[in-house]
Amino acid sequence: MAQTQTAGLQEQFEDLTQQRETSNLGMWIFISTECLFFGGLFLAFTVLRHAYPVGFATAARHLDLLSGIAGTVALLASTLAMSIGLAALRNSDRFLSFLACFGTLACGLIFLGLEGSEYFRAWHEHLVPGGSFQFIGPEAGHVQMFFLLYFVMTGFHALHLTIGLGVIVCMMLLIMINRLHAERYGPLQVAALYWHFVGIIWTLLFPTLYLLGGR
């Protein structure tokens, strides 16, 4: 009994419950940091969008709305799969949990693929800021400003998502070798928290970048 209780318990904790609660709290604190990180970006975007509504609306129309919607759906589906994966693990259904994590991974990859094709199209149309940027029209400068912020904001989001995908792969491995199970689901819970946060950021990015103005 004592043996099973202490398996996977780090030396600084008294028991698994304390360890799980502490990890959860740690992730919540990290999420609060991330909120302020993305918050700075949203603020900068809002200030500049307020200053140049026409240019930003023009630029937003050059994003592919359908691709954006498809990505949003994929990401929402991935968070659903993540929730199922956690619930399944807590109900001792390791196989379903593994499957759901795989679903999360697949949906996340679809999202990254869609965003990659958006990036490629923007590059093809010379909308990437810097030396190769070309845009004919009076608002060219502000369109470039929009795309600078677009790439920074979605780029940071994609970076977070990629890290999340790596974490999910680790979780799948841990489920496979029975290191995660109904008694020890803490790490998956923390990973799920992070993944949901990445999803929430996208649900704010999508309307901000794709939907505001002129659609």
């Binding site: 609060s32 940091t33 302020l36 990180f37 918050g39």
Partner: peptide
């Protein structure tokens, strides 16, 4: 935790 990320993004 709450102020440093703003510097980072800045």
């Amino acid at each position: 935790v709450l102020a440093t990320p703003v510097l980072a993004i800045l």
